[in-house]
Amino acid sequence: MVTLSDLKISEVKLGEEQTGKWGMVIDQDICTGCQACVAACAMENNITFVGEEDSGYGRSMHWIRIERFWEGEYPEVKMTANQPMLCQQCGHATCEPVCPAFATVHSQAEQLNLQVYNRCVGTRYCANNCPYQVRSFNWRDYQRPEPLPNQFNPDVTVRRMGVMEKCTFCIQRIHKAQDKAKSEGREVADGEFTTACAQACPANAITFGRVDDPESMVSQLAKRSHGVKHLEELGTLPNVTYFKGG
């Protein structure tokens, strides 16, 4: 019988060999910066509202955010394309090796970066080591006034104070689709489900799917020549491809 100890870390392929499983393509040219993805993500994943004061301290919690940049000198200031930034689900993530509690680990099954809330002790080392700055920390137990608790997603843990959290690529939807497909004795079809942000995007700027399947929509889109992976030079092997100026 294979035991847990047989699953050696050394078996994890590092460097350029590793291929992801789930990936995303974001077209910045059609993103309007409407923040629908940000709202949908917060609803889907039980993300709290930190309020004005904590937001002022830079403690706002988002798993996806729209970054804005400007070009040129005043008065010829030009805004560049909106840039939705979320966890890139790196194949070789910088957040993982620094966690002293092994709370952020790489999922061998789904090839995602996991955040195990019940293991997290809140050192915030992972967030400080993330080059994309996409992790957010629960500085308090934020109060949700009635009737807001009624809209909690029961498939997602409600995080407590002192716990780090980040985008999961809507792993609850992945599991739900896999469970449904398995009960019907088939494989999960491409486009059968998508993440909350991609579902909410009115411009269809976000596409989600299997990057290890060459026939999937994401793989087809990612082939376009002007695709960019952010901070790829750090060797993080991100699974999100951005298009700008195509």
Binding site: L7, S107, Q108, E110, L114, V116, N118, T157, T168, H175
Partner: peptide, 10 residues
């Protein structure tokens, strides 16, 4: 799959 953290914790 069965020993993956993400199978039960998310």
């Amino acid at each position: 799959k069965l020993s993956d953290c993400g199978t039960c914790h998310y």
